[in-house]
Amino acid sequence: MRRVVVGVSGTPGSLAALHRAAAEARAREAQLWVVMAWQAPGGELGSRNSCNVSALAQCREAAAERLRRILDLAFGARPAGVTPAGLTVRATPGAALVDTARGGDDLLVVGAGSRALLRRLARPSVARYCLAHAVCPVLTVPPPPLQAELDAVHRRNLWHLPLDTRELAP
């Protein structure tokens, strides 16, 4: 059976990708697999030295609970025409998505995200990783328009800039 695989993190961009993936799954009559990647505290090297089995189990359960909340936030009840299957994977987001969408008939949907210079330096792009390593087609979904407004508010708050009330008027 064909699958549409989408990664989520809870950001507005990942929710937009999730809704687009649900629409693609309905149109293709495919299964919808929603992937939440998680890592141990301190990354893989840190987990070898300091994390015990119960700490890893707690991290896995926290990722599963976060995935349940994201699906509930995105769809409430069940989306019409498709039933999402949630999957938590212990890996980096890009590797988790590429490993999950390994069939040639699969479609991998990822959010393109905001790619400001500082974010590119701090975190590698999941979308770029997927485009470079996936064996199936990859659909990148641009951030929703609300994301640009949220980024502008965040920058204004970060730099302690005053709010211009004329921006609030319709």
Rank of each mutant, 00 (worst) to 15 (best):
R2M: 14
R3F: 02
V5T: 10
V6G: 08
G7H: 00
V8A: 11
T11P: 05
S14E: 07
L15E: 03
L15N: 02
L18F: 06
A22W: 12
A22P: 07
A23D: 00
E24K: 05
A25H: 12
A25S: 11
R26K: 07
A27G: 11
E29C: 05
E29R: 15
E29W: 10
E29H: 14
A30W: 04
A30F: 10
M36K: 15
Q39F: 00
A40W: 11
P41Q: 12
G42T: 07
G42E: 07
G42K: 10
G43A: 03
G43D: 05
G43R: 13
L45M: 15
G46N: 11
C51F: 09
S54A: 11
A55F: 05
A55I: 15
L56C: 05
Q58W: 05
C59H: 10
E61N: 14
E61L: 13
E61K: 12
A62R: 14
A62T: 14
A63M: 05
E65Q: 15
R66D: 12
L67S: 09
I70E: 02
I70R: 07
I70N: 03
L71E: 10
L73W: 12
L73T: 14
A74H: 11
A74M: 12
F75Q: 00
F75C: 06
G76V: 02
R78W: 12
V82F: 01
V82G: 04
P84S: 13
T88E: 14
V89S: 01
R90E: 13
P93A: 04
G94R: 01
A95K: 14
A96V: 02
A96M: 09
L97I: 02
L97C: 01
V98I: 04
T100W: 09
R102I: 06
G104K: 11
G104M: 06
G104F: 04
D105P: 01
D105E: 14
D106T: 01
L107N: 04
L108C: 08
V109D: 03
V110D: 02
V110A: 03
G111A: 15
G111K: 11
A112V: 01
S114M: 04
R115I: 03
R115Y: 05
A116I: 01
R119Q: 12
R119P: 11
R120K: 13
A122Y: 10
R123C: 10
R123E: 04
S125P: 02
A127V: 00
A127N: 00
Y129A: 10
C130S: 03
C130L: 10
C130E: 08
L131Y: 00
A132N: 02
C136N: 00
V138S: 08
V138N: 00
L139P: 00
L139R: 00
V141N: 06
P143C: 10
P145T: 11
L146W: 00
Q147C: 04
Q147W: 13
D151A: 15
N157S: 14
N157C: 15
L158A: 13
W159D: 14
L161C: 05
P162V: 14
L163Y: 03
L163G: 02
D164Q: 02
T165M: 05
T165Y: 07
R166C: 09
R166H: 08
L168C: 03
P170Y: 03
